[in-house]
């Protein structure tokens, strides 16, 4: 494990639970590592599995999806879809040789600031163990 290596983690958080949980971690001044960059979506069900692939292609060393706990989805069942898609995508990524330690999913409710901090630390640790993500490195893509 390369201790000096500072991985970049791209996190997709649902607006209602996990993004609110991340906000709560802030309001409660819980310090966590600055390696994570958050993208807000309305529902974890919005996270197209290709977003994960895309983030890894761009050079992110780890990805995270987080949504409401099962049964709590603001849109009733989006988190179930997210979970199914995630499982498939992780299998696929593992299949092509991506370390599963880079690919994270966790439920975080609006009241779980502390849990959010924990999963960030875990995601950073996982990515550190896997080392810099070089597999998909390619020329810069322009959108």
């Amino acid at each position: 494990m390369n201790e000096d290596f500072e991985p970049t983690i791209v996190a997709f958080l649902c607006n209602w639970c996990s993004y609110a949980g991340a906000d709560l971690a802030g309001t409660s001044r819980m310090h966590y590592l600055p390696n994570v960059r958050i993208i807000r979506v309305m529902c974890s069900g919005r996270v197209n599995p290709l977003f994960l692939l895309n983030a890894l292609q761009q050079g992110a060393d780890g990805v995270l999806i987080s949504g409401c706990h099962p049964g709590d989805c603001h849109y009733l069942e989006g988190n179930y879809y997210a979970r199914r898609r995630f499982v498939l995508m992780r299998k696929l990524l593992e299949h092509v040789g991506v370390d599963p330690g880079r690919i994270n999913m966790s439920w975080v409710s609006a009241s779980e600031g502390a849990k959010f901090k924990d999963i960030i630390e875990k995601a950073v640790e996982g990515a550190k163990e896997s080392g810099p993500m070089e597999q998909f490195k390619r020329r810069k893509i322009n959108w």
């Binding site: 960059r37 979506v41 919005r46 895309n54 983030a55 890894l56 761009q58 893509i141």
Partner: peptide, 21 residues
């Protein structure tokens, strides 16, 4: 595509944030 959260609106965010500094 959901308006304001289209693929083409999210992918550029990933392109910026996914790059390791």
């Amino acid at each position: 595509q959901p308006k304001s959260f289209k693929d083409e609106q999210i992918l550029p965010q990933i392109a910026v944030l996914g790059v390791r500094t």
